[in-house]
């Protein structure tokens, strides 16, 4: 009962966050437009890979250009969710610690992790990602003649949700180093570049990279597994893993978060 009440409270507060962020971003409309333009360039950079694959026009490790299109489209949609829900929060974590704002947040009567990691929602960056990503997925889906019943689309969406949860846990983890190091710029850069491995289907990488990206640092699970499920290429182990790993990672991240906090001694006075 207590748990339910807390959850409802946090959901209501999250609604307020959404509203607040939307108002704040609409206040600076020019900024909003420029942000969209900036993200369009990034989306274009991801599209280069699609251009390349269609221009070359050969099957790569058994994947036709249309398959690759489906993978890259899903990657773009997931990038959209990342910048929508998480990016601003994770980038700001080190600033909160340095400026002492974290101390203020601690005094609020809500979960601190919730407050720190979900406070900001960015509405401008996801727009190009969602538009281009969804068009690519729909186009590839049609061209490949994949089943499009409610069952298939439902499963695809469910795996996307799993991916979002996993993304939260996995990308928060390196940012928690902000409790120990001051300059996190290169950390952010390396994490971002690591994510770009998903810009191509995992099938093109060597076995070892595939294993690392599936089990150790499961970034491939986020964007590759929903597509593999649609292509009917997930074996039993992978089908279990895709649902288990978000929960495992969430627990790990929660544990690390608590550990970091227990060692935290306020930065500024």
């Amino acid at each position: 009962m207590y748990l339910l009440r807390e959850m409802l409270k946090h959901m209501r507060i999250y609604g307020l966050f959404v509203k607040n962020c939307l108002i704040a971003q609409m206040e600076y409309r020019m900024n909003f437009v420029i942000s969209i333009a900036q993200e369009c360039v990034f989306t274009f950079a991801k599209l280069l890979y699609v251009i390349l694959i269609y221009q070359v026009g050969v099957d790569i490790n058994g994947l036709s250009p249309d398959h690759v299109l489906l993978f890259i489209g899903t990657y773009m949609i997931m990038t959209g969710f990342y910048v929508l829900f998480f990016m601003d929060n994770f980038y700001q974590l080190s600033q909160h610690i340095q400026s002492g704002l974290l101390d203020v947040m601690m005094t609020k009567p809500v979960s601190l992790q919730f407050m720190v990691t979900l406070r900001r929602i960015n509405f401008s960056f996801p727009i190009p990602n969602f538009i281009v990503g969804t068009s690519m997925v729909v186009m590839a889906w049609r061209r490949l003649g994949l089943e499009s019943g409610p069952q298939e689309i439902g499963l695809f969406l469910l795996l996307i949700v799993c991916g979002i949860v996993l993304m939260y846990a996995l990308f928060l983890l390196p940012m928690l180093l902000s409790f120990y190091i001051i300059k996190t710029q290169s950390l952010i850069e390396i994490t971002d570049k690591f994510w770009d491995f998903n810009n191509m289907p995992m099938g093109i990488y060597s076995r070892w990279i595939q294993r690392i990206g599936t089990f150790l640092l499961p970034i491939f699970v986020i964007t590759n597994f929903p597509v593999l499920a649609m292509m009917d290429e997930l074996d039993t182990l992978a089908s279990i893993w895709v649902f288990a790993v978000p929960i495992v990672m969430l627990l790990v991240t929660r544990k690390v978060w608590r550990f970091c906090l227990s060692k935290y001694s306020s930065a500024s006075s």
């Binding site: 790569i60 850069e189 770009d196 491995f197 810009n199 191509m200 990279i209």
Partner: peptide, 15 residues
């Protein structure tokens, strides 16, 4: 900075 250039390099070499 050079290290962070290694990831895109690896991706492209695989492609």
């Amino acid at each position: 900075g050079l290290v962070s250039g290694v990831f895109p390099l690896m991706i492209q070499l695989f492609i």
